[in-house]
Amino acid sequence: MGNEGHEAAEKWLNHVEKTFLVMQSQGNLPPDRWIETTTEFLGPELVSWWRQESYQMLPEVAADWEVFKQLFRKMFIPLEYIDRKKQEFTHLKQGKMLTNEYYRRFTDLSRYDPEVAANPVEMLHRFKLGTKKKWCSIATSTLCATYQEFYEVLLRIEDSENMPSESEDEEEKKGNQRRDDKGKGQLSQGPRKSQSFKRSGTSSSSSSGGLSSNV
Rank of each mutant, 00 (worst) to 15 (best):
N176I: 14
S194H: 13
A62E: 00
V61T: 14
Q186K: 15
L155C: 10
S205M: 03
D108W: 05
K69W: 03
H15Y: 10
M1H: 10
L211H: 11
T39I: 14
P30Q: 01
P191S: 08
L71R: 15
P30E: 06
A118N: 08
A118T: 03
D159S: 08
E53F: 12
L46T: 03
M57N: 05
R33M: 12
K11G: 07
A118M: 09
A8P: 05
T37G: 00
M97D: 10
S205A: 07
R199A: 11
K69S: 01
S188N: 13
F20Y: 12
M57R: 13
W12P: 06
G43K: 00
N100W: 05
Y81W: 15
P78C: 06
M123P: 04
R105P: 01
F106H: 04
R179F: 08
E115H: 01
R156M: 09
F76M: 10
R179W: 01
F76Q: 07
N100E: 15
G27T: 02
R105S: 08
R104K: 12
T202C: 12
Q26C: 09
S206L: 12
M75Y: 06
A62P: 00
Q26N: 13
E60A: 10
V16L: 00
G95W: 01
Y151A: 00
L71I: 10
L58W: 10
E10I: 00
G5Y: 04
G201I: 15
H91R: 12
I138V: 12
K86G: 13
E122C: 05
M97H: 02
D169C: 08
A62I: 03
T39D: 03
N119G: 04
I77W: 07
L211R: 11
Q24K: 12
L211W: 01
N214V: 13
K134C: 08
E17V: 05
P191D: 11
T107R: 06
G130S: 02
Q186P: 02
L58A: 15
L13V: 06
V47Y: 06
V215D: 14
E80L: 09
M123N: 02
A9C: 13
F106T: 05
R156S: 11
R126Y: 11
S160R: 09
T142V: 15
